[in-house]
Simulated scan of single mutants.
Amino acid sequence: MRLLLVEADTQLATAAQEYLRRSGLAVDQVCSGRQMIDAVEDHCYEAVVLSTNLPGDDPVALLARLRRQSRRLAVLVTIAMSSWCEPLELLELGADDYLRRPYTLRDLAARITATTRRLPPHEPDDGATSFAGIKLSPLTHAVTVDGKPVALTRREYSILELFIRRKNQVLTRSQIEESVYGWNEEVASNTVEVYIHGLRRKLGTPLIHTIRGVGYQLASEAQPIMMSRRSPAEGSSEPA
């Protein structure tokens, strides 16, 4: 799961980001409302942790803006002791939950998990969780193949979930990396290949295809990309 942490306290943000990443989450962090809006527009997140303690920003207005951008985004608001924001008002405006500060990082991680679990399931066309005998349970992260349980790491699960939600589409290496790593996380050059190899071995099904020179595709059969070729006449000038 990829989430956006909106926090102006640099020390807290760094600690929370490291803790959540160790828990297997992909975490990006910004420190202002403007940066949050830009990030949500440019990237796909499952959750946002929004602090009410952002200098110069109105958390109520930011929350309303978030909800206009996405109704499916899980929003957890962290409320400072000195904040004028009322929890009930934030919930009425669309926050899924709130957490009073100071909080422990363990509490933060648990509240994020609980908040995302309460989200309604995706519509079948928008986010199927099964394909060709592979079934995923978003609530428990359990995976079965033809009814038999398969143990995956958190990142393997995230990649498989991405493939299933975008089945038959070709995903580039950068798209896969973006789904499981936050900004500024070091990614080895062969990381995606290692995860793909592990998924193929554990799933035991030839469904993840390598599309040479492009990326990977989850499909019953590999569907080659048709690339147009220029005819010899194209680009040449007409004779005088």
Rank of each mutant, 00 (worst) to 15 (best):
P124R: 11
E89F: 03
R201A: 10
I176K: 00
L152G: 06
G127C: 09
K148D: 05
T205K: 15
T129Q: 13
E89C: 08
W84P: 09
H141A: 13
G127M: 10
V77Q: 02
L160H: 11
R200Y: 06
M81L: 14
W84K: 12
R118P: 02
V180H: 02
S83K: 11
D107G: 04
L119V: 03
K167L: 12
Y98A: 00
I164P: 02
L90V: 02
V180R: 01
S179H: 15
R155F: 12
D107I: 03
N184R: 15
P121F: 08
L76K: 02
H141D: 12
L171K: 03
S158N: 14
T115P: 00
V145W: 01
D125E: 15
A188D: 15
V143S: 05
I134R: 06
E89P: 03
I79Q: 08
T129F: 11
L88F: 07
L93I: 04
A151G: 00
K135G: 09
E185L: 09
L203K: 10
P102E: 03
R165F: 12
K148G: 01
V170S: 05
R72F: 05
L162K: 14
S189H: 13
N168D: 15
E186F: 00
L105N: 05
T140D: 14
L88V: 14
Y195W: 15
A151F: 01
P121T: 14
W84F: 12
E178L: 13
R71Y: 08
V187C: 04
F163C: 04
L90Y: 02
R201F: 11
R154Y: 13
L162W: 13
A151T: 07
E86Y: 10
G182S: 00
T144D: 07
K167W: 10
T153E: 10
V143L: 06
C85F: 02
T140E: 15
V194F: 07
V150T: 08
R111A: 02
Y157D: 04
E92W: 08
N184K: 14
E123W: 09
A132L: 13
N184L: 13
A128L: 09
R101G: 05
E186R: 04
I159K: 07
S70E: 09
W84L: 11
D126G: 13
W84S: 14
A74Y: 04
P120I: 03
C85Q: 04
G94W: 01
L199D: 07
G198W: 05
P149K: 10
E86T: 04
K148P: 01
T140Y: 12
L152M: 09
P124I: 10
L93G: 01
I164A: 05
L119A: 07
P121Y: 09
R173N: 06
F163L: 06
Y103W: 13
V187Q: 03
Y195T: 03
